[in-house]
Design a protein around this nucleic acid. Structure first.
Lengths: 166, 166
DNA sequence: GAATATAAGTCAATATGGCTGACGTAAAAT
DNA sequence: ATTTTACGTCAGCCATATTGACTTATATTC
């Protein structure tokens, strides 16, 4: 039995290796979100507001149902957060021209500024990690992260390019 | 100005590249936690219970303050979750022999079984992603994830080995 | 040995961010 | 004209986190 684990097969994924990955995800995500979370408190906002600000900034003119599909929460949950952001002037809603039922979302200038502030720390954290790890490691990171994701749709939205465009 | 982005410098980390990483972390973590979360509901537990079960399983005989340091939550928050797990027989507490103020934590058999069930999906998800990405990519994944983490202490706890032990 | 510090737990109040279910309105599609 | 879709709202519930105050038991220090 012990011999099974002793084989020099690089595809034999041992318990320890998998546990390490579980912990890397936990610790990295925890640290990745800690600083924006702390900043949000000053606005009376939470992590949910950051997500909305982020994805609206990323996909301007997206509809509410697009956003719901990305966040995978109920519209009631989104409503509270989105409503606050609209009322406080971080996000602007405008009816779609083709389909006037849709309310297209975009950041206001104030929203853009908040998004930039919130994500700045995350961008720098990634930039540092990427720089220290090197281009080849970054490529591996992307491959594994794409593999962990469930949805083909999300993979396409993020974009699979691992080439360094120039 | 446009020429800055056009330079073939692999260390120039562009906006798009950093945004992609932010999204990879969001989507991967969301999908990584979705299935255990769904299972926990059947026990009347939440993600916090999974974390406690996981880390106690990982570090048997750890103290309450060790666990608090890993989770970075208040003892009041931990107390409710840990108390439930102890009362329902998933975790056993026993006074430390050297320092009897400490209550050392370990999983019961029932706890080991629950931990295995909960993490099984996560292990398989990682195993598949690792297998598809290949050993070199896995190494890169580890490097980047370690870089994203803030704390040297956590890095040491997870263990930095990227060698494939046999 | 007395004073202090530490480990753990508890009580109470509060906030955030999810959820379900029910219902309403406007606009598009059939 | 009817049905479906997109969006919103009200109400209530639950899990998870917070701060602050206080207790008990045991170790450590003076």
């Amino acid at each position: 039995m012990a011999d099974v684990k002793s084989q020099a097969n690089p595809l034999f994924l041992r318990e320890e290796e998998l546990r390490q990955a579980i912990e890397l995800l936990y610790y990295a995500y925890r640290d990745f979100t800690a600083e924006p979370d702390a900043m949000l408190v000053r606005y009376g906002f939470g992590r949910a507001h950051h997500r909305v600000i982020y994805f609206v900034g990323r996909h301007p003119q997206m509809s509410v149902s697009d956003l719901l599909a990305i966040l995978r929460i109920t519209k009631q949950s989104l409503s509270r957060v989105l409503g606050q952001l609209v009322r406080q002037g971080f996000i602007r809603q405008s009816p779609g021209s083709r389909d006037r039922r849709r309310r297209l979302l975009e950041l206001t200038e104030k929203g853009v500024e908040l998004e930039r502030q919130l994500s700045e720390n995350q961008r720098q954290r990634i930039a540092r990690a990427y720089r220290e790890a090197g281009v080849q490691a970054v490529d591996g990171f992307r491959k594994v992260m794409f593999g962990i994701m469930s949805s083909e749709e999300d993979r396409n939205r993020v974009g699979r390019r691992s080439d360094a465009p120039r």
